[in-house]
Simulated scan of single mutants.
Amino acid sequence: MMYAAHAAFAGTGTRLAVATVDHALRDGSADEAAGVARAAAALGLDHDILTWGAGDVPGWDGRGNLQDAARRARYALLSEWAARRGLAAVALAHTADDQAETVLMRLARAGGVDGLAAMAADSHRNGLRLLRPLLAVRRAELRRYLTALGVDWVDDPSNDNPAFDRIRIRKALETLGELGISVPALAQVAQHMQSARTALEGQASAAMAALAQSDSGDLLLDRAGLLDLPAETARRVLIRGLRAVTGQNGYPPRGAAIDRLLAAVSEGRDDTQAGCRLLVRHDRVRLCREYDAVRDLRAEPGQAWDGRWRLIGPAESDTHVAALGPEGARQCPDWRVTGRPHASVIATPAVWQGQRLIAAPLANLPQGWRAEPAFPSDA
């Protein structure tokens, strides 16, 4: 990717920078990252090594799915790096082979349209634009390209470890190709599913515009209108609602979790999912932040809290921003004037001085403070 981008943008004035993520999971990874740094320097490119666990992104704790945790950490590190560098986008070197493997992995998990659409050539994650310009290129073609340039490469030994699902899928592809289930065919399936996803997202956008309204960070949905939608469109509306309320635009909850939320809407019961509360009333559905998801968050006044709010007000010493909570709500005698339910109000930001509540502008206790959205929603 580095060599191809350097060749493609030579003389255009486009600023390029390079990052290598060192997951620090095996001996030799640091030396390999340093080798990329030397190669970048030879091309005159700035290079940074992003080590998992060395900064604000916690390292591997030995629990859960290692490859999934590594992937999430990788994107978090790249997002922080791109923001620090002031980069408009990050180009990733995923190939047609990676795309085919992803389709098969999603198929094994009974993935729907979004799952089988696999990786998009142009997408956003965590506020970062991701470009994958090599999705139509085979892995072997890239190796031939490097060989022609006289450039060597390092094969990650974990790519031969059958303990990982992706590696078993990669081995299976060698046999499936004899049945016509080839890398090009699977990549084409992804393209077809991406077209279907685009059409479905268009319907979800129209439904959101017709059924949704914002209420101080919460999202209100017309219940009857939501239930009248085709099930797939309704699911996408709920996913957009979750993203709007949490300010997070990563992987959505699994299909079964969204189906459970849709069933709750139909049955008229409340539910919790992905750091949100679903509160169902006769004529409407409210999505608000879940208190337990934000109860331990802290920020300085003026800084982003929960990635969604900034509290601005008079300068006071030793203050911090944290969730209002049940105790804080008891100190806001007029919080009901907001018209929002208790579950919503206690998850809003407030200004504290130690254990003393100073202000809660979203609970009708402004005291000279105001709450401003920190970032526009990606949903």
Rank of each mutant, 00 (worst) to 15 (best):
P133N: 04
P361M: 08
A299Y: 10
A172C: 10
W52C: 03
W81T: 05
P252V: 14
A82G: 03
Q367I: 00
M2T: 14
R85Q: 13
F164H: 14
Q194E: 12
A148V: 03
M105N: 08
A204V: 14
G64D: 10
R71Q: 11
V337F: 00
D271W: 00
L186C: 08
W60R: 03
G202N: 05
I358P: 01
L261S: 03
G354H: 04
D155Q: 10
S317V: 01
V137H: 03
D271A: 15
L130N: 02
L311T: 07
L279K: 01
E316F: 00
I169F: 07
R125P: 01
L131E: 05
S195W: 05
D27H: 11
T102L: 11
G177P: 11
R132Q: 14
M105F: 00
V351M: 05
F164A: 07
D31P: 01
F9P: 09
A96K: 09
L43Y: 12
T12G: 05
L287A: 06
R129F: 09
V321R: 01
G59V: 07
A148C: 03
P157Q: 02
E316G: 02
A39H: 14
R289A: 13
T272P: 00
L200N: 04
G268P: 12
H320A: 10
P157M: 02
